[in-house]
């Protein structure tokens, strides 16, 4: 495995391979076992956009495997503010590091980075484009909780238009054979190309504007934030934010083994009272970023 740019590039076999390796690294991720397979290696972590979980879990993953991390979070103290191109930044960082994790506000940034890097590039989110490592940890969590990745009824809820995680996840789930429901406010529906792909692959369930309409048949309720930074007009944001609120009453209407996932951060789309319910899996999901990213780093840097 070399670059990790888009979920489209990953075969079912490669996905399963990453998940299996991640499963085998759970004890190391928890600090209950030691592994220094990346000792002496350096990860370049360059984040042009805010991130908590993705950046910290990549750094944790690298440290847990004995490696080091360089990089920046925010461009204020870098030459980017002087007008340095992404291409030059990547050339430079890839000279210092053994792999580069990149988050950037522009779609296609990770693809561009591959053209200027001698080292593997891992896409940690490019604009409203791809976020493949989030997808992998989502799949890891689904398999961990449900015991399988196929034959599930998954309802994607919230901002399906701008939320990059749901685009990648929908494509990835369709590789396994599932039924996918799309629940979004008006104006934030899933982009046409994703819907077409689901329809063509026979995995489109239903599209609606209310979680109540699908809750009784849902195995996985995947909730996303209404992302303020994707709205050019703050008034428009206020209008739709908070329209979708997942509370204990709604969660209780789902099947007994239903789980609730969320890529986080959440604002008010899942009320805190849900956190204590057995269905709530979003903090386990966030933790799973560590073993999954450990698996990826060991594959792209360690050459396993």
């Amino acid at each position: 495995m070399r670059h990790v740019i888009s979920v489209h590039d990953l075969s079912v076999e490669e996905i399963i391979d990453v998940l299996d390796r991640a499963e085998g690294m759970l004890d190391i991720a928890r600090g209950q076992a030691v592994n220094d397979c990346l000792k002496g290696k350096v990860l370049g972590s360059i984040f042009f956009e805010p991130s908590t979980r993705t950046r910290l879990s990549f750094e944790t993953a690298m440290h847990r495997l004995g490696g080091g991390v360089i990089g920046f979070a925010g461009t204020e103290a870098t030459s980017v503010v002087k007008g340095e191109t992404l291409a030059d930044t990547i050339r430079m960082v890839s000279g210092y590091a053994d792999a580069v994790v990149l988050r950037h506000p522009r779609e296609g940034a990770a693809k561009l980075a591959t053209e200027f890097s001698a080292k593997p590039i891992i896409n940690a989110g490019d604009g409203a484009g791809q976020h493949p490592t989030q997808t992998l940890l989502d799949l890891f969590t689904i398999r961990q909780e449900m015991g399988r990745l196929e034959g599930l009824n998954i309802s994607l809820v919230g901002d399906l238009r701008y939320g990059r995680t749901v685009h990648s996840l929908a494509f990835a789930l369709s590789k396994f054979g599932n039924t996918i429901n799309l629940v979004s406010p008006e104006g934030l529906e899933m982009p046409g190309e994703v819907v077409e792909h689901l329809e063509d692959s026979g995995q489109f369930g239903t599209a609606c504007h209310s979680p109540e309409a699908v809750i009784d048949s849902t195995d996985i309720l995947y909730v996303t934030r209404i992302q303020k930074e994707r709205f050019p007009d703050p008034v428009e944001y206020e209008k739709v934010a908070g329209k979708y609120r997942i509370d204990p009453e709604l969660v209780s209407q789902g099947p007994d083994n239903m789980i609730v996932m969320h890529p986080l951060p959440r604002i008010n789309e899942i009320v805190p009272e849900v956190d204590a319910m057995p269905q709530a899996k979003y903090f386990e999901q966030a933790f799973n970023g560590v073993p999954v990213r450990m698996a990826l780093l060991s594959m792209v840097i360690g050459g396993d």
Partner: peptide, 11 residues
């Protein structure tokens, strides 16, 4: 408009 190819990059 948000595509990286519309930025000042050498591609």
């Amino acid at each position: 408009p948000n595509c990286i190819s519309n930025q000042n990059e050498p591609i």
